[in-house]
Write a protein that binds this DNA or RNA. Structure first.
Lengths: 142, 142
DNA sequence: CAAAAATATAACGTTAACGTTAATGTTATA
DNA sequence: TATAACATTAACGTTAACGTTATATTTTTG
């Protein structure tokens, strides 16, 4: 039983059924297999991909378009790894690889930017919390 | 000349005039002073606040509602600091302070969650980049 | 002070990301 | 096997976050 129906997927990912169909509609996930009657049948990997999407969306505040870019990069890598190993230097494939590398570098730089700013924000919040708690403390001792 | 018209503010913050008016409309910023004829006149602080909003929105992917909460917290703190110091223990103000403290704790926890997940993502990206570059390297030596 | 440039309000338009409802067909279960 | 419980498509609805356009004032400038 390694085929899941849409409601199972919904429960596993926290998305609604509508959202899952919508993600398929805009090409964020590829159309899954179908039963004789037309019911969508998902695999465990499909669920993994969706979990990744949820995480990235929630955590990074990426738009679905940005997510599409990001996931494409990842998948291109994983799917074509073998293929890449045996292409001639200076070939089309090499240029592809260089594209991927550049894309990755951009994403990493962006992430670093965000992380830095988040750290600054956290510091600010920590300081505020400290001050508030100091006030609460001070008053307790009156 | 410490009063700015909306176009100056737009240029200073990178927002459009429409967006600035919209932020006022939904209460994200307070209505600025007006000229005799009704033209909005902003102060340097107004501009600062807007710059903060832009930063938070871009970096954190917060919705405007979340931003509202966050900025309110910050402002409440800064505006009422003096006032808080001299309220009786167990008073209304004390409960307010406790609310603020709790709110801060929530925001901090949320931030920590996000930072953790971002770190994991970055690690993944770094690994991918490493593999791609290894491939590029390998082929150079053929 | 008259023309040009900027501002104001009001209202309708747009896009992303789904929610909701309806009509119909498919699967699971007593 | 009937019937309840789910799935499918299609289409219209909704909310956030602005964009665009129109019409009327204000402000600036030659």
């Amino acid at each position: 039983m390694d085929r899941f129906k849409i409601d199972d997927v919904a429960k596993a990912t926290g998305l609604t059924k509508r959202t899952i169909r919508y993600y398929e509609e805009i090409g964020l996930i590829k159309p899954p297999a179908r039963s004789e009657g037309g019911t969508r049948l998902y695999t465990a990997e499909d669920i993994e991909r969706l979990k990744n999407i949820v995480a990235a969306r929630e955590v990074l505040g990426f738009s679905l378009q940005e997510l599409q870019h990001f996931l494409a990069l990842k998948e291109t890598m994983e799917t074509h790894r073998a293929e890449y190993r045996h292409a001639a230097a200076g070939s089309e494939k090499r240029r592809e690889l260089e594209q991927i590398s550049a894309g990755l570098r951009r994403q990493i730089a962006m992430l670093e930017e965000k992380m830095k700013k988040m750290a600054m924000l956290k510091q600010e919040l920590d300081q505020m919390a400290e001050r508030v708690d100091a006030l609460l403390q001070e008053r307790r001792e009156e």
